[in-house]
Amino acid sequence: MKHISSKNILIAFSFLLIFSCKKEEKKIDNPVPVPAPTPDPYTYNNELQSSKDISFATYVISDLDMICAYASQGISGDYEATPSQSSSTTTIVSDTMVKQIVYACNNSRCKDGRLRNGAAFFYYGYDPTNNYWAQPNANHYESYGFSASVYLDDFRVNDWKVQIFDPSQPAHIRNTLAGDLYNPALTNLTWEISGKFQFINNLDPSRNLVWEGVIKKTLKNTSDTAVFANKKAKVKWHLAKLDYIGSFSGMRSSSQTLYTYKIDSNTPLYRDMTCSYAPQGATDVTEFHPFVFGKSVFTIGDYHPRTIDYGPTLNCDNKVNISFKDESHTEELD
């Protein structure tokens, strides 16, 4: 019998162990599910004209309020025809008997650079239907209880005709002081303009729009006696610092698209009447006072909401930054 060495026995035993051991199955962890990307609820569109048009409409509405403010003092102010425009006129007619103020312009290139035609009528007498806010003795824009119904007759600003949407439903300008017993050193003068307007573009009907809502204005430096000497005085508007807030909505005619526009109280639009901006190449523009600070949010259709930023600094210009999605555009307004 052959001798089997212990070495051979050890090798054989090792092979037996290796091949007889059951391999442990490798456990595979369940993969972490990757969430599907959230679909963008908005439709991408990088057009900017609607933002510029709605900003222009905001100027026009706020200017109607300022025209009433000046006309109440018997002057045209910034909305007077420039001296070099000999063929154009602006006229203020004030009738205290019927409590009516009329601002009329004929091919008037005004001091703010806008070309105006037509007339604006402000009726500040009490009317139980159309002007029930008016107080009997509130004959001045600065007075508590002043309220005016606004009517427009073929009123045009640059290439836009501006009209009351429903002539039987006038717009309104109101002094919104809570009462006559106030202290100008502690309480700012406030007003609002509200109504429904239609803007018709003479050159491009697709840009027509309807504007309905309210803009509220605050004289931020009411306490400055150089601006407002006392409760019986007239505001010196060329020194005024003004805040605007409000919201409105409507429709753009190009596609019957609905829109909304909001100026929040945290970021009001700011107008410094000591800032007079003249666009490059403009002549005789001496009293254009643009918004120089603040933000508004503009939504139109299912496009990404637009933030219209008039500037984080008080630069005296007419530029805005329009941002949406991940884009930002700097534009000069009309």
Rank of each mutant, 00 (worst) to 15 (best):
32 V>Y: 01
47 E>I: 04
42 Y>F: 15
30 N>R: 14
29 D>W: 05
35 P>K: 07
36 A>R: 08
29 D>Y: 01
43 T>H: 11
52 K>E: 13
22 K>S: 08
34 V>G: 06
41 P>H: 00
47 E>A: 04
25 E>M: 08
59 Y>A: 07
45 N>W: 01
68 C>F: 15
24 E>S: 13
28 I>F: 12
65 D>F: 09
38 T>W: 02
55 S>I: 00
20 S>A: 09
54 I>C: 03
51 S>C: 00
66 M>A: 06
60 V>L: 06
52 K>D: 10
59 Y>G: 10
55 S>N: 10
66 M>E: 06
48 L>H: 09
68 C>R: 02
36 A>I: 11
23 K>P: 02
64 L>Y: 01
27 K>G: 05
36 A>G: 06
59 Y>L: 15
33 P>E: 04
32 V>Q: 06
23 K>T: 11
19 F>V: 08
39 P>S: 10
21 C>H: 01
65 D>Y: 12
45 N>I: 05
44 Y>F: 11
40 D>G: 08
30 N>V: 13
65 D>S: 10
68 C>V: 08
56 F>W: 10
40 D>E: 15
64 L>R: 01
65 D>R: 11
31 P>H: 01
20 S>G: 02
62 S>T: 14
59 Y>P: 05
67 I>C: 03
48 L>A: 09
33 P>F: 00
51 S>Q: 09
24 E>P: 01
37 P>G: 13
58 T>I: 01
64 L>N: 00
62 S>K: 14
55 S>Q: 07
65 D>L: 15
60 V>G: 02
28 I>Q: 06
24 E>R: 06
20 S>K: 01
23 K>F: 04
44 Y>M: 04
20 S>H: 04
44 Y>G: 00
38 T>Y: 09
19 F>K: 05
41 P>V: 07
62 S>I: 12
55 S>M: 09
43 T>I: 15
44 Y>N: 03
39 P>N: 11
59 Y>K: 12
68 C>K: 06
41 P>L: 09
50 S>F: 14
26 K>P: 02
54 I>M: 12
46 N>R: 09
47 E>F: 00
48 L>S: 02
49 Q>P: 03
68 C>T: 12
64 L>K: 02
22 K>F: 03
25 E>P: 06
66 M>K: 13
31 P>L: 01
20 S>T: 13
56 F>K: 12
42 Y>G: 02
48 L>T: 11
25 E>A: 10
22 K>E: 08
50 S>A: 14
56 F>G: 00
57 A>L: 00
41 P>Q: 12
56 F>M: 09
58 T>K: 04
21 C>D: 01
46 N>L: 07
56 F>P: 00
25 E>D: 08
63 D>M: 03
43 T>E: 14
65 D>C: 10
57 A>H: 05
56 F>Q: 14
53 D>H: 00
34 V>F: 05
26 K>V: 15
45 N>E: 11
68 C>W: 11
37 P>N: 15
40 D>L: 08
33 P>K: 04
66 M>G: 04
20 S>W: 02
45 N>T: 03
40 D>H: 08
43 T>F: 08
20 S>C: 09
62 S>C: 13
33 P>M: 01
36 A>P: 01
29 D>L: 14
36 A>D: 05
28 I>S: 04
38 T>G: 08
